[in-house]
Design a protein around this nucleic acid. Structure first.
Length: 420
RNA sequence: GGAGGGUUGGCAGAGAGGUUGAAUGCACCGCUUUCGAAAAGCGGAAUCUUCGAAAGAGGAUCACAGGUUCAAAUCCUGUACCCUCCGCCA
């Protein structure tokens, strides 16, 4: 959510930002509804004032005649108030619906572009493996090594179902534990977060109303979070934090649920796209400063790079172009891992900042050193998702006999150097 | 799932239709006193929002949403959450 004052005073900037993000929202209409809202509001507040005055006088000592007259006047005030309040309520509903459509403004450093195609590669790292044999994909490798069972996965869960088992299960645990140690050493407070979350908080992160199709729902009007970003942002909702406790640095583990409603034809098999997975997520709440946001954005991004580098997996970094960026983002990077069999980089995580777009919706504020209250800034970034990471890991480190060499940093967590 | 009790400011806790944004205590911030501190005394302090250049003047907020009333923290209804007991259960 942007500040309505900012929208009023920077109409052209907001229009331009929405255009870059290809968001169709009528800013002129919003401003005229806002004007109407303020007009009705001012009338309603005047009438309430009249009502308060009248009530006050009735509380005192009045003659019968004076009393009757005030009551008569109050009736008129009350009737008009009822009418205007109803009008105000309807106007606010429209106003809010439009406000939720207004996207966050992309940073100037964000490349222009229509879609994924125009995302900019900004960095590559690592040597893509050269095999002197025909490499297998992760599905074949993992089935052979009894690390995963997709047939029974779909039998039990349905489309996109999987079981991890044996060294597949052990390897996942090893990655979780390694990630906890690795990111934990970077001064994050680890959390295990609930995935079942009240609906309202999905509006805060920007997942609703936009992505409703992609979210599983319970019969109690709760939704299943597709990322720990949702519960962790909700964690401090409606709170005023102190200046000293910022920045908040959280590393949250949670199961993640995604319906993948718009992706039926994509990645039909294997562990790239599943309904249920697990993720460590980095999240920061910091002071309301663009410089701090940018600094932490780069840091969070570098954290995931370092983690991937420690595993020795080839990756690239991509700056998301304005047209492909989510509504709530100011700027976003994707980290993509090399998948040898597909001969493609595939997304493993993304790192984004929001300024106060999310915290305004969550009402997360802090008191600065002068005692003034501001909305905090928020940032979040993937630390590591499983099982998607396994795809690159087993494919890049496969050997001619179908066994998998385990990166050195994981060996002590897994208890072996090779899966065969 | 059943029965009962609760939810008031940073915390504790009054208030049971009328000038209550809310007593009192603790904590907090000034000032006085002191070499300094403690103690004591005096004073100040919630949040959101509208109009305004400002000074200031309105409006809203006692879990949340409705309702009754000229007037609701206070009465009624619904929802959420907390506590106690019973039942069930990792």
């Amino acid at each position: 959510m942007l500040d309505i004052k900012f929208i009023r005073e920077n109409k052209e900037i907001v229009k331009e930002g929405a255009k870059r993000k290809h968001v169709d929202v009528d800013i002129d209409e919003l401003i005229s509804i806002d004007q109407k809202r303020l007009e009705i509001l001012s009338r309603v507040e005047f009438l309430r004032g009249e009502q308060n005055k009248g009530s006050l006088s009735l509380g005192g000592t009045l003659t019968e005649a004076a009393r009757a007259q005030v009551l008569e006047e109050m009736k008129l005030v009350k009737d008009e108030l009822k009418e205007k309040e109803e009008e105000l309520r309807a106007t606010i509903v429209n106003w809010q619906a439009l406000m939720l459509k207004v996207p966050n403004m992309p940073d100037i450093s964000v490349p222009d572009g229509e879609s994924e195609e125009q995302n900019q590669e900004i960095k590559t790292w690592g040597e893509k493996p050269k095999f002197d044999f025909e490499p297998k994909d992760h599905i074949e490798l993992m089935i052979k090594l009894k690390m995963a069972d997709f047939e029974r996965g779909t039998k039990v869960h349905g489309f996109r179902g999987y079981f991890l088992m044996g060294d597949g299960a052990r390897l996942s645990m090893a990655i979780w534990n390694y990630a906890l140690d690795f990111f934990g050493a970077k001064n994050f407070n680890p959390f295990i977060a609930p995935a079942i979350v009240n609906k309202e908080y999905f509006i805060g992160t920007g997942h609703l109303p936009g992505d409703a199709e992609d979210i599983f729902q319970t019969q109690d009007d709760q939704y299943l979070a597709g990322t720990a970003e949702v519960p962790m942002m909700a964690y401090h909702s409606n709170e005023i934090l102190t200046n000293e406790e910022l920045p908040k640095r959280y590393l949250a583990f949670s199961p993640c649920y995604r319906r993948e409603a718009g992706a039926h034809g994509k990645d039909m098999k294997g562990l790239i796209r599943v309904h249920e997975f697990y993720k460590w997520e980095q999240l920061i709440l910091c002071r309301a400063s663009h410089e701090e946001s940018v600094k932490y954005h780069e840091e969070l991004n570098r954290n995931i790079e370092e983690f991937i580098e420690s595993l020795g997996l080839p990756y690239r970094q991509v700056a998301i172009c304005a047209g492909d960026m989510k509504n709530a983002h100011v700027k976003s990077y994707d980290t993509e891992l090399w998948v040898p069999k597909e001969e493609k980089y595939r997304e493993i995580g993304s790192t984004s900042y929001y300024h106060d777009f999310q915290t305004r919706r969550f009402n997360i504020r802090y008191r600065d050193e002068e005692g003034k209250i501001h909305y905090t800034h928020s940032l979040n970034a993937t630390a590591i998702p499983t099982p998607r990471i396994l795809v690159s890991l087993v494919e890049n480190f496969q050997q001619a006999d179908g066994s998998i060499k385990i990166p050195e940093v994981l060996q002590k967590y897994l208890g072996k150097e090779i899966i065969s």
